[in-house]
């Protein structure tokens, strides 16, 4: 899932200082699970802003709402009447949600309340670790289920650099070297021969990605 962390309070307060009516929109999916932008976090931010601004002597009206997903138009359309009543909107969704919300309501200033951080796993409540870089070319079949693009500090595709010492990464000595882990995993599975192949250089994205499911090509694909 997408992991995000809330921006510092002062940064958020600064963004909305000129608007008397602000709507905070939460997202009930990824950012709710990682405790950054769900319904509860909307409530906390709203309470913080109300109290802090009242202490500063500023009159501000703060609305709260949370949609199931901010990356789906149908959920964002449902809050049109609420958005209309406010001068600005704070989105607590990931960067996708913020952009989609801003796109749907272009007349309203939309401010992000979280920093979208990575694609990660939910290790425990409040503890998340990165696993995927969404690079569009998955190498996990060749690397024993450990992603070299994400887990190797240098994103190397053909084995380790010369730096690891006792299985630890040279960039951060407290972290294990991903390629040492890949070697151990493949050795355990008896698949070390996979390391003899050469992986060609990865294609870096030069434009925003787009994906159309094969079953929907007729509907969405533009004629060339």
């Amino acid at each position: 899932m997408i992991i995000a962390e809330r921006k510092p309070f002062d940064e958020i307060k600064q963004m909305i200082k000129d608007y008397p009516k602000v709507l905070i929109v939460g997202c009930g999916t990824c950012v709710a699970v990682c405790l950054a932008g769900g319904e509860k976090e909307v409530g906390i931010l709203a309470a913080e802003l109300r109290m802090a601004l009242e202490l500063e002597g500023k009159k501000i009206e703060i609305g709260e709402t949370t949609v199931e997903r901010q990356c789906d138009r149908e959920f964002l359309e449902a809050i049109a009447s609420q958005v209309e009543q406010y001068d600005a909107v704070i989105s607590m969704a990931c960067g996708v949600g913020v952009q989609f919300l801003a796109e749907m309501y272009p007349e309203k200033p939309v401010f992000p309340a979280v920093n979208t951080t990575f694609l990660g796993a939910n290790e425990d409540i409040g503890f998340y670790t990165e696993r995927c870089s969404a690079c569009s070319t998955c190498y996990l079949a060749l690397t024993g289920g450990i992603c070299p693009v994400t887990m190797c500090s240098k994103g190397l595709l053909n084995g380790p650099c010369g730096g690891p010492v006792n299985g630890m990464c040279e960039v951060d000595r407290t972290r294990p070297c991903a390629w040492c882990q890949i070697y151990e995993r493949l050795k355990q599975q008896g698949r070390l021969d996979l390391l003899k192949g050469v992986v060609p250089a990865r294609e870096f994205k030069t434009k925003p990605a787009q994906f159309i499911h094969p079953a929907y090509k007729k509907k969405f694909e533009r004629p060339q």
């Binding site: 309070f9 002062d10 906390i44 913080e48 109290m51 802090a52 202490l55 500063e56």
Partner: peptide, 8 residues
């Protein structure tokens, strides 16, 4: 920490 930020 939040209460410190708010000013309470």
């Amino acid at each position: 920490h939040l209460l410190d930020e708010i000013g309470i």
